[in-house]
Design a protein around this nucleic acid. Structure first.
Length: 685
DNA sequence: TAAAATGCATGT
DNA sequence: CATGCATTTTAC
């Protein structure tokens, strides 16, 4: 050891290090040594900002007398923790600690305003527990980084409460006007709202917002993307005073983002509109949470612990007693469960209202050739679709053409009736992996040698191929002289000018037409329906409904899918609620979310196995097996597997707790590599 | 990045 | 098997 001169620190080296330390931290910047604890409530219970799961518990510190004022529940502080200085948040002030050992003093306060409220503190803890994550992880999603300049800027005057809204828009819905009145009265009414086609939904959301503010309570509106936020923002500006609401979105820039967030925390602004992270905004005296189009996968947070904005909204409403409005043109199985359990009431239009608002919807027949080749599909677009497009264009209206997005994974389905092929053991999707002959389950990996279609008995499988398309080009040829616009990928159009045009868009990127589209051609049917995903049908219906909702009541929608399919029937009859009920029944039979609760563990095989072996899972937990997956972005290269666990819904919290506890043991041991734990993953293939 | 706990070689 | 020093672990 001593022979190795390079390893042993030399005396000059030590002297130099001491000198550097002096220079970095002069004695006068250090807190005084003779600190005294604050006279009252001298103990601060804090949560430390550490990603380690075993440190996700409270720690107690002494509050020095000089920090007595600054250290309040919710304050950011710096503490010395295992030697290093780290950030922490004050959860409570206490008279005494339960900790046996000696308490350290808090080092200093950060900023002079609390960032957590009693309500958000409880919410973040519950969210962490529900998704097997840490408080610090949730906080990172929920609270924007501090910006000192924004903090010291002059506070803005609060806007006065608005007058109550005009109830006419909501009166079209059964229970609509009553809901508006109840929200204004401050009752915690919870509803699942199915908007009628063509609905000016941003205006309806603006009205419920106005009603809540008129009743003196705060409002939170969460939409999938910034395009939707811009539309609702306009609607809010039309009914609210300037400064009565803010838009929170990730693309704001640190200073503006923190300033707006701070105005909300201070209670100066009582209405918040934003994308998924806004669901955590510290709105004071929350009276209503609105979530629009909860089936959009943008509501699923891609960062740990992967909470879903709809589920957070539901938690938050139930924790605070606030009203909840889950709105959309479609309906998810999750929303259907809220209704079925009686926790939320449906808000739907009367059949007559619906009939008047809904465009004519026609399904194309089942045509194998059309499915394979988008160009052929277009070239051979039945006369019906051509006629609908021509009629609309001639009347001066634009025509929407919805085409599949790129990149759907190929999957297997019944060769005869295209029922998606599912595993006989766990009901996961079957796929032809590699060149092997026997297809296998993407979830549990079991081969499916003797598969039979459950609906028709067919034994043969076919790959369902999808393609994006040179659809625009083909269309241009089919309709020469007509203005052609595309909206897809990174070139999404928010709206289009009035007048005849062909608009080719991928699902979710459809621009809004000022007077509605004269026709919509939904060409992505098979691509959507053949996805090897639990939510394929629900998602198809949601996308079709969102596109069809942009069509004028006197217009026509042509859907390129077989009219005999239940999901197509649901579109033809405009019955998203009925479809969601059936979807929920299917999920119940298969014990899938939202009826059951699942957890996906993703990581290196040994790490996943270790986490599983350390987890004291509830007795009800089923292990669905482990399959190789492509390494996720940001993960180190090497083989990755995914294990799926499933429990009945009441055991969901126990499952999350067990996994979190096991992760804590692993992190305390500093053993092994990372394992991602995702509760109720959206994509289950 | 501080203190405590643990590990390890050395000398009696 | 105490002692001194290095390394590892804890975390208030």
């Amino acid at each position: 050891m001593t022979a190795d001169g390079a390893q042993a620190p030399s005396l000059p080296g030590l002297v130099a290090r001491v000198a550097v330390r002096r220079a970095v931290r002069p004695a006068k910047d250090r807190p005084p040594r003779d600190r005294q604890p604050a006279a009252t409530l001298p103990v601060a219970r804090v949560a430390v900002d550490s990603p380690l799961p075993h440190l996700d518990r409270p720690f107690d510190y002494l509050v020095p007398a000089e920090l007595d004022e600054a250290v309040r529940p919710g304050s950011r502080v710096r503490v010395r923790f295992a030697g290093r200085l780290i950030d922490a948040w004050v959860l409570q002030r206490l008279a005494a600690s339960e900790h046996d050992g000696r308490l350290s003093y808090l080092e200093r306060g950060v900023g002079d305003e609390p960032v957590l409220t009693a309500e958000t503190t409880a919410l973040f803890r519950t969210v962490a527990d529900r998704w097997a994550g840490t408080f610090a992880d949730v906080l990172r999603l929920a609270v924007p980084p501090r910006h000192a300049r924004a903090e010291s800027a002059a506070p803005v005057e609060a806007a006065a409460a608005p007058a109550p809204p005009d109830p006419a828009g909501w009166a079209r819905y059964r229970a609509g006007a009553a809901y508006l009145a109840a929200v204004r009265a401050g009752r915690g009414v919870r509803a699942v709202w199915n908007a009628v086609p063509g609905e000016d939904w941003p205006a309806r959301i603006a009205e419920v917002t106005q009603a809540t503010l008129a009743g003196g309570r705060g409002v939170l509106v969460v939409v999938p993307d910034v395009r939707d936020a811009a539309r609702v923002d306009q609607a809010l500006q039309a009914v609210l005073a300037k400064g009565a609401h803010v838009v929170l979105s990730a693309d704001l820039g640190p200073e503006a983002r923190y300033r707006r967030w701070l105005a909300v925390r201070r209670g100066t602004v009582r209405a918040v509109l934003g994308t998924r992270a806004a669901v955590f905004a510290p709105v004071a005296d929350l009276g209503l949470v609105v979530i629009w189009d909860d089936g959009d996968d943008l509501h699923a947070e891609p960062r740990a612990p992967y909470p879903h904005a709809r589920d957070v909204a539901v938690l938050r409403a139930s924790m605070t007693g606030a009203a909840l409005l889950v709105g959309g043109f479609g309906r998810t199985a999750e929303a259907a469960l809220l209704v079925e359990s009686g926790w939320a009431q449906p808000i739907v239009a009367d059949r007559a209202v619906l009939r008047a608002a809904t465009p004519r919807i026609v399904a194309l027949g089942d045509d194998v050739e059309l499915e394979r080749d988008p160009a052929a599909r277009l070239a051979r677009l039945p006369a019906l679709a051509f006629r609908a497009a021509r009629t609309a264009l001639a009347a001066g209206h634009p025509v929407l053409v919805q085409v599949p997005r790129r990149g759907y994974a190929p999957a297997l389905a019944c060769a005869r009736d295209r029922t998606p092929a599912r595993c006989g053991h766990c009901a996961g999707p079957l796929a032809a992996t590699g060149r092997q002959q026997v297809p296998s389950c993407r979830w549990c990996g079991r081969p499916a040698a003797d598969w039979r279609c459950p609906s028709c008995g067919e034994g043969r499988l076919r790959a369902t191929v999808v393609g994006s398309a040179r659809t625009a080009e083909e269309l241009g040829r089919a309709f020469p002289g007509v203005v052609l616009r595309t909206s897809a990928g990174d070139a999404v159009l928010a709206d289009i000018p009035a007048g005849p045009a062909l608009v080719v868009a991928t699902p979710g990127a459809e621009p809004v037409a000022p007077d509605g589209y004269g026709a919509a051609l939904l060409l992505d049917g098979w691509a959507l329906l053949s996805r090897p995903d639990l939510r394929a049908a629900e998602e198809a219906l949601r996308r079709w409904a969102n596109a069809a909702a942009l069509v004028r009541g006197d217009g026509t929608v042509i859907v390129g899918a077989d009219a005999s399919l239940p999901v197509v029937q649901a579109l033809l009859r405009w019955d998203p609620a009925g479809h969601a009920e059936r979807e929920l029944a299917d999920r119940r039979e298969l014990h899938f979310p939202p009826v059951g609760r699942m957890a996906a563990l993703i990581g290196a095989p040994a790490d996943v196995a270790e986490l599983l072996s350390l987890s004291q899972l509830p007795d009800s937990a089923e292990e669905l097996g482990s399959v190789p997956v492509a390494p996720s972005r940001g993960a180190q290269p090497g083989e990755q597997v995914r294990s799926l666990l499933r429990v009945p819904r009441p055991d969901g919290v126990a499952l999350a707790e067990a996994l979190h506890a096991a992760a804590a043991v692993r992190s305390a041991r500093k053993s092994g590599g990372p394992v991602r734990v995702v509760l109720d993953p959206l994509e289950l293939f």
